[in-house]
């Protein structure tokens, strides 16, 4: 029964080895998809390359379907699985600032590590910038503390918030993703930039 590590008493060394191996797969998949290229990632927002949409939603669907099935067959105790805690204001404000960082910088933290690994200098710069941003938050934390802690709703699931079953929500996400994939494929033809695609 999963999750294996929290349920069984696994040593810290093995735990960190598993972390490293999981990261290895994570980095490999990101790089193979082309997430090591900022111009490929930015293509999402101009329509010439929608790989971000395709990879992100395929991955999310694979994992959420997997969790639903593991739970159904009683192979995982979802009570032990971490559900992100929801604070209304901080999730939105944080997301907006990150979105701005995405369009200005061309990476997110995970993809910048992956791109830095193959020698992208802009990714190393982004990574350096992210340390500065985290430091800036840490240093100015008292200014944000109130809004950061405001409206705590706990580990709330979207399915519970709207009052539908997990399975129905997953079905809805899959339907929405298929529609978005179709739009993505259309956008790549409509907004195609062979000059850029050739280079990345």
């Amino acid at each position: 029964m999963g999750p294996i590590i929290p349920i069984n008493d696994i040593s810290m060394e093995i735990n960190f080895l598993i972390a490293f191996l999981v990261g290895l797969g994570f980095g490999f998949a990101l790089e193979q998809a082309g997430f090591s290229s900022s111009r490929k990632l930015a293509g999402m927002f101009y329509g010439y390359d929608t790989v971000v949409l395709k990879v992100f939603f395929t991955a999310a669907i694979t994992a959420m379907l997997g969790l639903v099935f593991l739970n159904y067959f009683e192979l995982i105790d979802l009570g032990v699985v971490y559900i992100n805690e929801y604070y209304i204001e901080s999730a939105i404000i944080g997301g907006v600032i990150m979105g701005l960082g995405f369009i200005v910088g061309g990476f997110c933290p995970g993809t910048s590590v992956c791109a830095a690994a193959i020698g992208k200098i802009d990714a190393i710069a982004f990574l350096g910038g992210s340390f500065l941003g985290i430091l800036a938050f840490g240093e100015t934390y008292p200014l944000w503390e109130n809004i950061y802690m405001k409206n705590y709703l706990g580990g709330l699931k979207l399915s519970d918030a709207v009052g539908i079953s997990d399975g129905l929500l997953v079905f809805g996400v899959i339907a929405a993703a298929v529609l978005m994939f179709w739009i993505g494929e259309w956008a790549e033809k409509r907004f195609g930039r062979p000059d850029i695609t050739k280079e990345i």
Binding site: G101, G128, G129, L132, G133
Partner: peptide
């Protein structure tokens, strides 16, 4: 890239996690 990284880093703390 440095400015974008700084914004993303700051936002990731505000939002309790990044894209991943």
């Amino acid at each position: 890239a440095i400015i974008g990284g700084a914004l993303f880093g700051f936002g990731s703390q505000f939002g309790r996690g990044c894209t991943s």
